[in-house]
Design a binder for these strands. Structure first.
Lengths: 350, 350
DNA sequence: ATTAGCACTCAACAAGATAGAGTGCTAACA
DNA sequence: TGTTAGCACTCTATCTTGTTGAGTGCTAAT
């Protein structure tokens, strides 16, 4: 009878486990004792390694797809890896330059930033990326301004306390002139300042309508515009990357995943920003949704005006290169905060 | 020796050819004489059909992937089909309702319309769809307006003669006040009215800068914004559909196509709107680009304010259901024109 | 002109054979 | 006592081979 395996991992077991994980992350092929023993820093015979691997398997760190295959890391192995042994490779200066050049073009439309972020993340990590648009739930209004554009059109500008601006072109009847719009802007602003978007929409529906009298159609448009900017949104990027992974070499598998990614509700849940952590790493079975229990999701949050406003991250096979992913997320997060605070400039100070 | 085949297709040959094309479009599998003879409206023995098929092959309408396979239509066969025998199935009322409901939500941002159109086209045709943003080359300026938003930010609104509006948030130094922005708006408008965007950008760079004196940074931002709205753009939709076609069941093939679709220049060329035709159908070898010679591209143009402004279409295997594709493009085109003219309302009349 | 019959072709599928990488166990070794 | 060589065993991936079936072209009969 074999002696019971100790609960704590010996130095050597750690070394071997790390090697296995590193290798599997790179290739996606179960790794065997023979090929491991060839590594310069693992100077043992295959047999010795096999013994250790048997122990590691018993402890739950390794899995075998079938009897005569090599071992692959289990979810707990990845968890250990992420928590304790991963080397977060500093982003290379080339990559940093890459990210910069992506973002360098002046972008002042929020949607553009979101979309581009998704693209950057996808390109750099080679995974599917997710970016959530800023959550507007707790945002309050600072100002509403209507500007006449042409005979029949006006621009509605909504300025929020976090500095995010939404604007929409409205149609107005010809009778309305600049001074009327100014008056309207003032009434609307007075009634909704410091209210959340939801409250503001409500107020416009009930209070303002009666106060202002007619122009029902116009008020409806304004109401719709405000309500609309509350809507939750998730942008995907790098979707084509799934074709590069052997895990999805079967077209059917790939299609299933794509289908899955279309149900945005789940994605939105996964991009939840209520937690305290800056990074969230969900490995395989740690995911809440059954459908993603064989994948890992790594997310980070971004801020606008010092307030957590949304999050972004990537989703991929459990064997993803966590170190690289995290370093990219980190750097992109920094860039993103930079850009988004450019949005505000000093507009928030006074 | 067999007698030479006449140049013109007999009624029967037409019937057989059409059957073959219809069948192949549906299944993607080369169709044989036996299965053809089973069709109720083709009341000949397989042998007879075989003879006719041999003739059709000699005439260039049919191809064989290998000796003992059924026949598949050649590019000229599809061309004939599209020109002379295709039945353009009226869109079903269900589909029409579908399209309507897609577009029904109020959309007032041009980019949103473009993006949604791409999605609709992809969903309805099950092909990859392309939509080009309006080409701004010949658009002229009607008005430039700056509006102060917060201490450090202003909104730049560009109104064009076709009714398309672009706006951008700029950062301004705190010293600038409303009246100064008004003055600036007037100067800019006077100098650029009725000029194209390109000319306007040029003018702002050269003339206005000297006339207005300092605030170089602000002028640069305005210049960038105008220049930026000229940029060409193509939005893709329904990319995931390629996974549904046996032609791309091989992941490698699918990946290649995706790669190809990323080089937007080619797509832009294919969405060219200089031609006179409302619809353009390029079948297989009719395509200019080598890379698309095994695919078909069907495009249509859309108008804003009565002027051709951009185009949209789909790209797929040569065996696509041309009748359906065209009917969808047609209907979507109508809806698109509707929506885009809502943008204008009467803003253009005066 | 049409069609039945026949020999022939070829892709697709299934079954069997082989190679190679991996394992676990035991016995020898330092 | 921990390490390693050796060996029998397992299982996948790949290659080979045979079989099936849908399809063709040609010829001769209708």
């Amino acid at each position: 009878m074999r002696k019971a395996v100790s609960k704590v991992l010996s130095e050597r077991k750690m070394k071997i486990l790390k090697s296995i994980i590193d290798d599997y992350i790179l290739t996606g092929i179960p790794v065997g004792s023979r090929s491991l023993s060839k590594k310069p820093d693992l100077d043992f015979s295959p047999a010795t390694i096999r013994n250790e691997m048997a122990d590691l398997e018993e402890m739950g760190y390794l899995d075998k797809p079938h009897t005569s295959a090599g071992r692959m890391p289990s979810d707990i192995a990845y968890r250990l890896y992420v928590d304790r042994m991963m080397n977060i490779n500093q982003i290379t200066s080339q990559e940093a330059r890459n990210i910069r050049s992506y973002f360098n073009m002046k972008m002042n439309e929020l949607e553009q930033v979101i979309g581009l972020t998704a693209k950057v993340l996808g390109d750099l990590t080679h995974h599917v990326s997710l970016v959530s648009a800023p959550q507007m739930d707790e945002i309050t209004l600072r100002r509403i301004q209507l500007v006449k554009l042409t005979e029949n059109r006006a621009l509605l500008v909504i300025v929020t306390d976090s500095g995010i601006i939404k604007d929409t072109v409205l149609t107005v009847s010809s009778g309305i002139d600049d001074s009327y719009l100014d008056m309207l802007s003032n009434v609307l602003t007075q009634n909704t300042v410091d209210k959340t978007l939801g409250e503001a929409a409500h107020i416009i529906r009930n209070v303002c309508c009666s106060e202002i009298g007619d122009h029902k159609a116009l008020m409806d448009e304004i109401f719709a515009a405000i309500e609309n900017s509350e809507k939750k949104e998730v942008v995907l990027g790098g979707v084509k990357n799934i074709l590069d992974y052997p895990e999805y070499s079967d077209t059917k598998k790939a299609r299933e995943l794509l289908q899955l990614l279309e149900t945005k509700e789940m994605l939105y849940d996964m991009l939840d920003i209520t937690g305290d952590l800056e990074f969230s790493i969900k490995i395989g079975s740690e995911n809440t949704y059954e459908e993603f229990k064989n994948m890992s999701v790594v997310t980070a949050t971004y801020c606008v005006g010092g307030r957590k406003m949304g999050s972004f991250g990537i989703i991929g096979p459990t064997r993803m290169d966590y170190g690289k992913v995290i370093s990219v997320l980190n750097y992109v997060g920094l860039s993103l905060n930079d850009i988004l605070s450019c949005f505000l400039e000093n507009g928030n100070k006074k």
